[in-house]
């Protein structure tokens, strides 16, 4: 463990907590893409199947349990409990265009052709594009509540911090995983225009408005 990975995990944890607070406090999931949340739940389910077979540390297990529970819980809140506030009309990104290519790619480009390894690879590829429905929804509505933009900033930062972690591990541990690194860079790059808007607008107290 290193400071970059810890900061990344905490940023990821913060993002999920901010989202849960937003939905619970406002009792609404307006502006949130349910499709992205479904993709995140798939990412965690396919990645943490080794939860009971591979004990790494109490921290690792606790975080996996929290990420699994919160992502499934968020889908429940969005599609069942606060269903009436879910914005179907703006959450229209075709997620099959994300699921199929990443599934095929994980069958072709992986470290080892085994069930667990392919599911892990699929989860890595899917996570890199899972935010697209959310970013698409923000561009369609043309704006986002400030708490939603804080959620996106924390979520985008987490994988950016993981890139620093991979650089650190390469130089100090000689460890690197090219699949995680490439997917992590793609994932972080997708947030670039949002990061620009967040830093130039939201941090100055303005609302996040996308040029229509």
């Amino acid at each position: 463990m290193n400071i970059f990975r810890l900061a990344g995990d905490l940023s990821h944890l913060a993002a999920i907590i901010i989202l849960l607070i937003k939905i619970w406090k406002t009792r609404s999931c307006a502006g949130i893409s349910g499709r992205s949340q479904v993709l995140f739940a798939i990412v965690f389910i396919t990645r943490y199947l080794d939860l009971f077979t591979n004990f790494i540390s109490a921290y690792n297990t606790a975080m996996k349990v929290f990420f699994l529970g919160s992502s499934i819980g968020t889908v429940y809140l969005m599609y069942l409990k606060f269903k009436a506030t879910y914005d179907h009309n703006h959450d229209t990104f075709r997620i099959e265009f994300l699921l199929l290519p990443t599934a095929l790619l994980s069958l072709v480009l992986n470290h080892e052709f085994s069930v667990m390894e392919i599911l892990w690879t699929f989860s890595i590829y899917l996570e890199s594009v899972a935010i697209l429905p959310q970013l698409f929804m923000v561009s369609k509505t043309g704006e986002a509540e400030s708490i939603t933009s804080h959620y996106l900033f924390a979520l985008g930062s987490y994988r950016g911090l993981y890139i620093l972690n991979w650089i650190y591990r390469y130089y100090f541990e000689g460890f690197y995983d090219i699949i995680a690194i490439v997917a992590g860079c793609v994932q972080t790059i997708l947030y670039c225009d949002f990061f620009y808007l967040y830093i130039t607008k939201v941090l100055k107290g303005k609302k996040l408005q996308l040029p229509a």
């Binding site: 080794d50 690792n60 470290h111 993981y162 460890f175």
Partner: peptide
């Protein structure tokens, strides 16, 4: 390369 086991990152 053989998959890096065990995967210790979240």
């Amino acid at each position: 390369s053989k998959a890096q086991e065990p995967k210790d990152e979240l």
